[in-house]
């Protein structure tokens, strides 16, 4: 599937959603309120304490926004298809994705693209841009390019997490609770991971590398004089696309198994 076809799917999806414009707008307002509340709580907290482990309010806002923004981008493509995959298989609706001259993976993602994350993207991007102007550091062209790449890589990594769990639908009957675990785990990176013990930091860096989404890009941007920050900052750019490719392979493996083992 090429980008033009994918964007045609997106056009149709937007058109469909606009049939229920009122619900869409109320939904967007609801989401923005929800995230605003999360920002507000952290802000209130830092009114008392100034910093969490040396991270100021604006730095935390940057870290937090990077997480939400990359999640919203990744989830636009993968959340709805992956969360509904188990039901799609059980209902027998998955067959339809194997009847077109398209890769079932991209066809499935395109068909269930979710435009509803636009509200997440708007609020997190606004706070991110605001925090960039406030954070105490020198922005250079290289750092801005790095930030763009980090957002892309982080989005891939968030999507990869959802795709991996979705792929398990082909093997297990229901995976809804694994998604809940995933979201609980993601709570760990809402704050700088330096507040946790070494073991947990290692886990979040190398085993379930969620810290690559926002923590390592942030510390690289805030302080690139430390060598390990540089190295991990670069790793963070690579791990997203790589993780997504691996999750894609796993998904295709699952889809093949579906074709062989039946639905």
């Amino acid at each position: 599937m090429n980008i033009r076809l994918f964007s045609y799917f997106v056009t149709l999806i937007i058109k469909s959603r606009m049939e229920y414009r009122g619900a869409f707008i109320i939904g967007a307002v609801g989401q923005i309120t929800g995230y605003a509340a999360n920002y507000l709580v952290i802000w209130l907290l830092l009114q008392n304490f100034d910093t969490i482990n040396g991270w100021s309010w604006t730095e935390i806002a940057f870290l937090y926004s990077l997480n939400i923004l990359t999640y919203a981008i990744g989830a636009s493509f993968t959340y709805t298809p992956m969360v509904s995959l188990d039901q799609t298989i059980i209902n027998g609706d998955f067959d339809k994705y194997l009847t077109k001259p398209l890769s079932p993976f991209t066809y499935y993602l395109a068909n269930l693209f979710n435009i509803g994350y636009i509200a997440h993207i708007v609020i997190s991007l606004l706070v991110l841009l605001w925090s960039i102007t406030q954070v105490d550091m020198n922005w250079t062209a290289i750092k801005l390019i790095y930030l763009v790449l980090a957002i892309i890589s982080g989005s891939f990594l968030q999507a990869a997490g959802l795709v991996v769990i979705g792929s398990l639908s082909f093997i297990f009957l229901r995976v809804r609770y694994l998604f809940e675990i995933f979201f609980k785990l993601k709570e760990f990176i809402a704050y700088p991971i330096s507040i946790y013990g070494t073991l947990l930091q290692m886990v979040l860096t190398w085993i379930i590398p969620l810290a690559m989404i926002n923590y390592y890009p942030s510390i690289y941007l805030f302080d690139d004089s430390v060598l390990t920050n540089k190295i991990l900052g670069v790793v963070a750019l690579v791990i997203g696309p790589l993780g997504f490719y691996m999750s894609y392979k796993l998904w295709m493996y699952g889809a093949n198994k579906y074709q062989g083992a039946g639905g």
């Binding site: 939904g27 307002v29 609801g30 309120t33 929800g34 509340a37 209130l44 009114q47």
Partner: peptide
């Protein structure tokens, strides 16, 4: 006719004002 958006808004109010994360002692 849209429950989830309203639920999000109430959840937002609960997040802040129930004090479940930040106790009201620390509120200005």
């Amino acid at each position: 006719l849209t429950t989830f958006a309203l639920d999000w808004m109430v959840a937002a109010l609960i997040t802040v004002f129930s004090g479940s994360f930040l106790p009201l002692w620390f509120f200005s």
